[in-house]
Design a protein around this nucleic acid. Sequence first.
DNA 1: TTATTTGCAAAGGCTTTGCAGCAAA
DNA 2: TTTGCTGCAAAGCCTTTGCAAATAA
Lengths: 142, 142
Amino acid sequence: MDITFLKSYLHKKGYRITNQRMAVLNAIIQAENKHLNASEIHALVKKQYPGFGLATVYKNLRVLEQEGLVNKLDLSDNTRHYEINLSEPHCHLLCLKCGHIEELGDAFYKSLYDLLWHESRFTIEKRSLVFYGYCSTCRLQL
Amino acid sequence: MDITFLKSYLHKKGYRITNQRMAVLNAIIQAENKHLNASEIHALVKKQYPGFGLATVYKNLRVLEQEGLVNKLDLSDNTRHYEINLSEPHCHLLCLKCGHIEELGDAFYKSLYDLLWHESRFTIEKRSLVFYGYCSTCRLQL
DNA sequence: TTATTTGCAAAGGCTTTGCAGCAAA
DNA sequence: TTTGCTGCAAAGCCTTTGCAAATAA
C-alpha cells in the first residue's frame, strides 16, 4: 500500500510526520484485515520503538480516524478496532466459531444502498455493519 | 406488551421475579424504540425505587440479554444501549442531525439476507447494523 | 525557533465484582 | 429454609487528559 500519499495528505493538513505516527499507520496497513485494537497496535509498534506509549496510540488513532485514513469498528467486545480506510465501504461477517472476519464490498453495497433508499429516504454517511454467524467452513462442523 | 409471558419464561429458567428486575424490563419495554443505556434505565427505575443501584441494572441487563429478552446495541457513543427483543431482527438508521433513530425490519431484512447468502455462504445468527446519515426531514435542511 | 507530538502518570467513564443483608420461592 | 438478588463500595478496563521534555518543520 502506498503510504507516500497518506503522508503528504497528513502533511498538507498540518500534521507532523513522526516515526510513531507512521508506525501506527503502518501497523494498521500491514495487519490488513485483522482489525487490530489499540493495545494490539501498541504491542506491535513497541517492538520497533521500545519507549512507545499507549496514549500515543490513542492520540494518533484519533487523528487518523478524523482524517478518514482509518475506520473505527465496534465488534462488540468492548474495545474499538481499527482498519485502513480503503474508501470503498464494506461490512464484516464475523464467524462465531473460528473468529475469521470476512469482508463484503462493492457489489453487496450497491444492492444494499438501493434497498435502503427504497425502504426509507435516508442518506447514508457512515455505517457500522457487523454480522455474526458461521462461515461456510465452520457451518459444516456444527 | 405482554410481560406475563416474559415473567414465566424467566421463572422457568430459574431466575427470580424481583421488583427491580421487572422494573428494568418494563423500562426497556416502555421506552420502546428509545434505546436506553444503563444509566438512563437506572434513572427511570430509581424514580419508582429510590434505593435502586446501578450495579443491579447491569446485573439484570446481562440476564435479560443472555436470555434473549433484550438486545444490546453499539451506537458508537461508548455506552451500550438496550432494546426489547421483538424477535424480528431489524437495523437502525441514526440521524446525525436530529438524533432520531429509525428502524427497518421485515421486508428489508428478507431482501438483505437473500443478498448476503448470494454474496457469501454465511449463516447469520446475530447482527449489529447501524447506518449513520440524515433522515428525510433533516436532509432538506443541510 | 516554535508549535506539535511524545510519554508518563493521573484522571475519567462505563462496567463488573465482592460481600453482607434481604427477599423470592 | 434455601438460594438467588440487591445495594453499596471497591476494583477493573479501556480511553482521555495534563504537562514537561523531545522533535519535526
